[in-house]
């Protein structure tokens, strides 16, 4: 029996969450490249093949469409597959099976078939890797009806959200912020704190609202601390779910602060941040004291890693936007 609260990195929390889900339901399978004996390139599945066997933790051939497409067939047979995509930029060979098959089959079959498949995607930058290893492709999937899209920012959320995603009868795109795999944080094993699809206020404030998901949440908390030192009270929201988006806490926050800055590593054009800006403009227009601003990656390919810090929004770029918002 583990202690109720334990400090651990997100990587270990995900491992514990996967283990709990597999122990709870023997129809849960893990599938992916190098996830068996190696434990995955990020070691998220470490030890699970030894514990649950080769038929529950499958080292697949190296083919993303094959992984997703066979997971679709397994779902038709009643299995609940958790597919690991090795890196964000390698998900595109599986795009048709995700968007045309996995996402649409429940609707196409008028509900006779469910697709309880989780696709785990280590995503985002800050790790100094080569091309295709640091992207943030979540908007493609948030745009697709039939998919749910979530991204944890803390070890505790990672532990609980992966189990909630596996328990869902819908396909869930699970974006893991790989730059947050190793910092430790508390995991409360006693209960799930919040439902899967809910936005959470992680720091209260009164002057301006900042919102992000995944690794950017910690950047916002840094920025909020600096702003506090300068006398600006910043509220920080962790989006957690990118589809559906829980707009209630966002609207409430904007009604209080009157200012919103949406932050993400992904490019800004036609992004999750754009959707939040549009919806806030529709629903909280009279509360806004300044335009909703976006702080995002540029609309370029992800750059060479030696200059990635100029691409990725940091606390300074967030604070620059805070200044602009307050000066409006």
């Amino acid at each position: 029996m583990p202690p109720t609260i334990e400090e651990m990195p997100m990587a270990k929390a995900l491992n514990a969450g996967l283990r709990a889900a597999m122990a709870a339901d023997d129809r849960v399978l893990l599938m992916g490249e190098d996830i068996g004996t190696l434990g995955g390139v990020f070691r998220i599945t470490e030890g699970l093949q030894a514990e649950f066997g080769m038929k529950r933790v499958l080292d697949t051939p190296l083919a993303e469409s094959g992984i997703i497409g066979t997971a679709v067939g397994l779902a038709m047979r009643g299995y609940r597959s958790v597919c690991e995509i090795q890196f964000d930029g390698f998900i595109y060979p599986g795009f048709d099976q995700i968007t045309s098959q996995l996402a649409k089959l429940t609707n196409r079959t008028e509900g006779s078939v469910h697709m309880p498949v989780v696709i785990r995607v280590p995503y985002g930058g800050h790790i100094g890797a080569v091309e295709h290893h640091q992207e943030s492709p979540e908007a493609y999937f948030a745009h697709t009806a039939g998919l749910r899209v979530v991204s944890p920012s803390t070890p505790n959320d990672a532990y609980w959200m992966i189990q909630e995603a596996i328990a869902s009868d819908d396909p869930v795109m699970f974006f893991e912020p790989k730059s947050r795999y190793w910092p430790k944080g508390p995991v409360d094993f006693s209960s799930s704190a919040v439902p899967l699809h809910s936005t959470r206020v992680v720091r209260t404030g009164t002057d301006v609202t900042l919102i992000a998901h995944g690794a950017m949440v910690s950047t916002l908390l840094q920025a909020a601390q600096v702003a506090a030192d300068e006398g600006v009270s910043v509220e920080v929201l962790d989006l957690r779910s990118l589809s559906p988006i829980d707009f209630g806490p966002i609207i409430s926050s904007v009604e209080k602060t009157g200012r919103l800055i949406v932050c993400q590593e992904a490019p800004g054009f036609v992004s999750v941040g754009s959707e939040i800006a549009a919806t806030v403009a529709e629903r909280a227009f009279y509360s806004l004291q300044s335009p909703v601003l976006r702080v995002s990656g540029f609309d370029t390919p992800y750059p060479s890693s030696k200059i990635e810090t100029f691409y990725l929004p940091d606390a300074d770029r967030v604070l620059e936007a805070v200044d602009r918002s307050l000066a409006y």
Binding site: G69, L74, Q101
Partner: peptide, 23 residues
């Protein structure tokens, strides 16, 4: 099973289903 219009995509569904039959 239902008709599939994206050419060839059903072959993977069948293979996954067959994996499940064996499991």
């Amino acid at each position: 099973r239902n008709y599939t219009l994206v050419i060839g995509s059903q072959t993977l569904h069948a293979t996954g289903y067959a994996m499940g039959v064996a499991f």
